[in-house]
Amino acid sequence: MTAIQTSGDGTTPGPRQLGDEVAIEMIGVHKWFGEFHVLRDINLTVHRGERIVVCGPSGSGKSTLIRCINRLEEHQKGKIIVDGTELTGNLKNIEVVRREVGMVFQHFNLFPHLTVLENCTLAPIWVKKVPKAEAEATAMHYLERVRIPEQAKKYPGQLSGGQQQRVAIARALCMNPKVMLFDEPTSALDPEMVKEVLDTMVSLAETGMTMLVVTHEMGFAKSVADRVIFMDQGEVVEQNEPEEFFSNPRSERTKLFLSQILSH
């Protein structure tokens, strides 16, 4: 882990040196919603410490892809292995994987009936069986990391969108996950709040966390990602390191997408 951290801040061009350890492996994954084919033959290997940005037009299956990784969606064909555990119908395996994988949603999904602190301690107390005082200490630690410890006793409804999303990140981190999934974390935010959330994500990236981020924030992709994956119509069309991806896209569909998204 430490090796990765230092190499991440090294010379700008070229891929960072990543460990050989595989965090997530997807082999020939297919998924249908009814008759609609949302994921077509996805093959993807994510190494430990790797930061991946998934982009693509809406409806391309990118959200579904990362939601398959903690089985909020069930794939119908192929194999998904997270940290050595294969996702099947086995509930035990699903529990194991969900403990190791944190997720941040587009609409925050904070629990409105619990305070910020209770949001953060709920899962550690009930899933990891951590004593309350310890869970609260951990929660405060992460709330400080996302720079809102003073809001701990408030309810989510009293916070701004950006603050809520940072709480959501802290809530996921409280489980000490090995992988973090971000499903369009800034899409539901007012423009002036995007930066505070992205900053939090950048600082998280600096700790060497394995991250899969679905986002349209291309600036974030350029500065943080080790690899950018472009999806269209359920397929991985192209993947490359950000430098190459943005300057020299190979597929026509990628070019079209980039021209649309970068034109503003």
């Binding site: 969900r98 944190g102 609409h107 999904n109 899962a123 899933v127």
Partner: peptide
Amino acid sequence: NYGQSEAGLALGLQRSQVLRL
């Protein structure tokens, strides 16, 4: 909102815990 259940599940809570908590 179904997102609430999803958030609970994603945190590793069991279905019965999601329902109760």
